[in-house]
Nucleic acid binder design. Structure first.
Lengths: 134, 134
DNA sequence: TTTGACCTTTGACCAAACTCCAAGGTTTAT
DNA sequence: ATAAACCTTGGAGTTTGGTCAAAGGTCAAA
């Protein structure tokens, strides 16, 4: 069982952030010490990792909370419902990936076309690079 | 030349958002009518599309402003500098894409493994799905 | 010429996701 | 036994990115 400071330090977040997650129903410590200190266990840590990864790929805390609640109560859901929700998220992620890929390809083409020398970048327009390709 | 309402409507944003972008140095209309109405031209629209696309792939307005300023003053930059900046952005985008891909693959595997039937989803854990694969 | 749909500005307000502060209790090392 | 480094709560403040409202000016159609 870890105290809040240890968990925060290991994931490079503030203790305040963990308290914020608790307050907003995302991650409650599984216990408290006699003196009232929050105590987190391995399962809490798994949940935290999930939260941080999901946040990293652009989900809002509200969306993450939804996923966590589905997961926590999955015994009372039907497989087909969970599958549908997960497949929706997959579609959402793929849309995001496609957007990112287009953006990257455009910038990559600009970088490739740019001589990279010491002369003026007059013709290296970032706006133009992102304009043409749909 | 379009007025603020027309441009806003075409990009499904609020007129207030365009005024906000102007106030924060992202997009100023290229002119004003006699009566003081903002007038946007084709180049402003290109810039707006850039802003919306960049925002769509997760850049903050501050980062977008930076790119716009580099673009606007590129005549006074060296090719190598612009190329370096653009290549940095490409790396950033690729990191994001890799994260997204991992997340999607994990969820996809859960969806694939899930029977999708009417029985309890006890064994379809979203947290578990995202846990193992690094 | 007046009604309705536009536009202007200033300034307040909002939600999300933290982040900090104050006042105090706990633990641990010396 | 006392200082340093933790922890508690409650509440206030911050940043980002808008969004709304008030009070008024403009313009086109009937």
């Amino acid at each position: 069982m870890y105290r809040i400071g240890e968990l925060a330090q290991r994931y490079e977040i503030k203790t305040d952030t963990l308290r914020y997650y608790e307050k907003h129903g995302l991650l409650a410590p599984s216990g408290r010490s006699d003196s009232g200190y929050r105590l987190y266990d391995e399962a809490d840590e798994v949940k935290l990792r999930f939260i941080l990864r999901a946040k990293g790929v652009g989900f809002t805390l509200a969306q993450i909370q939804e996923l966590l609640m589905i997961d926590a109560s999955r015994a009372s859901w039907a497989c087909q419902d969970v599958k549908a929700i997960v497949e929706n998220k997959v579609v959402e992620l793929e849309r995001k990936m496609a957007e990112l890929k287009q953006f990257r390809d455009s910038l990559q083409q600009l970088a490739d076309a740019c001589c990279g020398g010491p002369e003026s970048a007059e013709h290296c327009s970032i706006l133009d690079a992102l304009e043409v390709r749909s």
